[in-house]
Nucleic acid binder design. Structure first.
Length: 575
RNA sequence: CGGGGCGUAGCGUAGUCUGGCUAGCGCGCCUGAAUGGGGUUCAGGAGGUCGGGAGUUCGAAUCUCCCCGCCCCGACCA
């Protein structure tokens, strides 16, 4: 491609809408332009990279046995009602009406469509396994689109759905997708870490997210340096023992009676930990009130622990919950946050973190404003419906596998593999007859990659102060030929044209900067757009029969004109 | 949805508090010249519903109200 013939609107200054490096560079390098919040046009350079990523995904999906299809983005609400997600996913569903007032939804994902396909087309175990995938535009009514392509209203996703005859077979499908994902991100030049992910209300062990460590990530990943453990913080556990485990075993009957004491002005764990009370946070009980499916529920944790909502969802089997409002809490418990406790509560279900099990000599709110109570024994004084792991792991705690300190790092989720089981196949009657003629629901898995988000994650991971540093595999063009001057009859331009056609014939994607711009402009632009290798041709070096080769971010070297093509090809091959 | 910030030419911005002549500057763009190895220089030029509406006023980018849009934080830790 000739620079003068394509469209690469680079910007010297950053539009004020961009906050993070990758978003700024997407705009400055002329890859995308915003139509409105969360909606972007891909310009030639951005689209080329996107297509290269898509192609890598296709090749690896095909290699793993995936079958490419294309499903409708516009979908009838009926299938969403059938799966039950018309209600549960309604927050993200874009809805529209046609001329006869019939309702439609824009697909945020395609489990319903693909399951309905399987329901009508799959009838025998002989047809299984199958793995259908597509690269499609998804629509989600995001609460807050942000960071350019990172969280958009409309975005491109690769989604795959596997159908198997059994759990064991589904695990094989799952593993095959997992392996494909490792190869895909590797080929994209992206360091993406597979981590154990929360399985939400479906449960089970089979869910991994592929995370790109980045300051601007929206997820926190807990991992150990040895690589033996990595999990989303929503899912992560640690090897830490409860501080209360050190308490001597004492008969409940031997414990002191609970005692109420005044705590004017004390509304936080921290305040109670300070003088004059000096109750260590890990000997306080934190009382959190939630509204779960319109009913109050209490969660108890040690004072220095933080509640993990994803774990709530797992234990309760529901995502329909929210923190209670202070007014609601006052109605139910007779006190406001800051003085809450579960002692004596028997009409509201109380769930307690495992760390509280058997604890005594604890302090908690009295359910009377400005009062707390001490000498609380969990076993004696609190009616706990169930104990479970509700706490959020913190950096520095021991790894559950190696015992080494855990690290916490924010990361961008670029991929997710998930064993679905039979949730959708049962709801939508996607079943098959086995060898014995018995009908069984298909065991499903789903596997997503945010294609547009991956593009941005690559830029977030591969850039410097000058611009993008594309991995060759996903660069819009691998090579940028930069003649200094653009007179067609000049020796410089003749050499440039010759290299351009030779490299193009060799199958390399080449950009020829044939613009009538000064050298500085061309250099700056080629670095901003981020071509992996630049071939500089000017009078000076040409006088010695040489041209200049400069890998992006690497050292400049001079080579003979006749060796130039070989050098470039070798360099690309070495990547 | 809650909180905060912003909205002036394609981009970045000054001016707004304290109302007042023709809304200023840089980049980019157009014309011409010089220059030609790191966003070069000089001269000339085009480009503005000051987000929209209503109001206050002799007079509004500036003050008031409403609306729209964009960005950030939050929507768990009592």
């Amino acid at each position: 491609m000739r620079w003068s013939q394509t469209f690469v609107p680079t910007l010297k200054e950053t539009p004020s809408e961009a906050e993070i490096a990758s978003h700024k560079l997407l705009l400055r390098a002329g890859l995308i332009r915003k139509l409105t919040g969360g909606l972007y046009t891909f310009l030639p350079m951005g689209l080329r990279s996107l297509q290269k990523i898509s192609q890598i995904i296709r090749e690896e999906m095909d290699r793993a046995g995936g079958l490419e299809v294309l499903m409708p983005a516009l979908q009838p609400p009926e299938i969403w009602k059938e799966s039950g997600r018309y209600e549960t996913a309604s927050d993200v569903l874009f809805k529209a009406k046609d001329r006869s007032q019939r309702e439609w939804v824009l697909g945020p994902t395609h489990e319903e469509v693909v399951t309905s396909l399987a329901a009508s087309e799959i009838s025998s175990y002989r047809q299984l396994p199958k793995n259908f995938y597509q690269i499609q535009t998804k629509f989600r009514d995001e609460i807050r689109p942000r960071f350019g392509l990172m969280r958009a209203r409309e975005f491109i996703m690769k989604d795959a759905y596997s159908f198997d005859v059994s759990d064991e077979a589904a695990q094989t499908s799952y593993q095959s997708m997992f392996d494909a994902y490792v190869r895909i991100f590797d080929r994209c030049g992206l360091k993406a870490l597979p981590v154990e992910a929360d399985t939400g209300v479906i449960g089970g062990k089979f869910s991994h997210e592929f995370m790109v460590p980045a300051e601007v990530g929206e997820n926190d990943v807990v991992y150990v340096e040895t690589g033996d453990y990595a999990a989303n913080v929503e899912k992560a556990t640690s090897g830490l023992k409860s501080p209360l485990a050190d308490q001597e075993a004492v008969e409940v009957s031997a414990l002191s009676a609970v005692e109420k004491f005044a705590t004017p002005g004390v509304k936080t764990i921290d305040a109670l930990a300070k003088a004059p009370f000096n109750v260590p946070a890990n000997h306080q009980i934190k009382t959190l009130v939630y509204v779960v499916e319109d009913k109050p529920v209490i969660f108890l944790l040690l004072g220095n622990d933080q509640l993990n909502e994803a774990k709530i969802a797992g234990v309760l089997g529901s995502t329909q919950f929210r923190p209670a409002e202070p007014a609601e809490i006052n109605d139910w418990l007779g006190a406001y946050p800051g003085s809450l406790g579960a002692v004596g509560v028997d009409d509201i279900p109380v769930y307690a973190d495992d760390f509280l099990k058997g604890g005594y000599d604890l302090t908690t709110g009295a359910n009377e404003n400005k009062f707390h109570i001490r000498n609380v024994s969990v076993e004696r004084d609190i009616k706990v419906k169930a104990f479970a792991d509700f706490r959020t792991v913190q950096a520095g705690e021991p790894c559950p596998i190696t015992g080494k300190p855990l690290m916490v790092q924010s990361a961008i989720e670029v991929g997710h593999v998930f064993k679905l089981g039979s949730k959708y196949s049962e709801a939508m009657n996607a079943s098959f007859l086995d060898e014995t003629g018995k009908s069984n629901p298909c065991i499903m898995g789903c596997y997503g990659i945010g294609v547009t988000r991956t593009l941005q994650a690559i830029i977030e991971q591969c850039h410097d102060d000058h611009g993008i540093k594309w991995p060759v595999s996903v660069a819009p063009y691998a090579v940028c030929i930069t003649p200094l001057g653009n007179k067609p009859e000049s020796e410089v331009m003749k050499v440039a044209e010759s290299l351009y056609s030779q490299l193009t014939e060799a199958g390399v994607d080449v950009m020829l900067d044939d613009r009538d711009e000064r050298p500085g402009v061309k250099f700056k632009d080629s670095e901003l757009v981020g071509f992996p290798i630049r071939v500089g041709i000017g009078d000076r070096s040409l006088a010695n029969g040489e041209i200049e080769i400069k890998p992006r971010g690497g050292e400049l070297s001079k080579v003979k004109v006749d060796d130039a093509v070989k050098h470039v090809l070798d360099w690309i091959k070495s990547q």
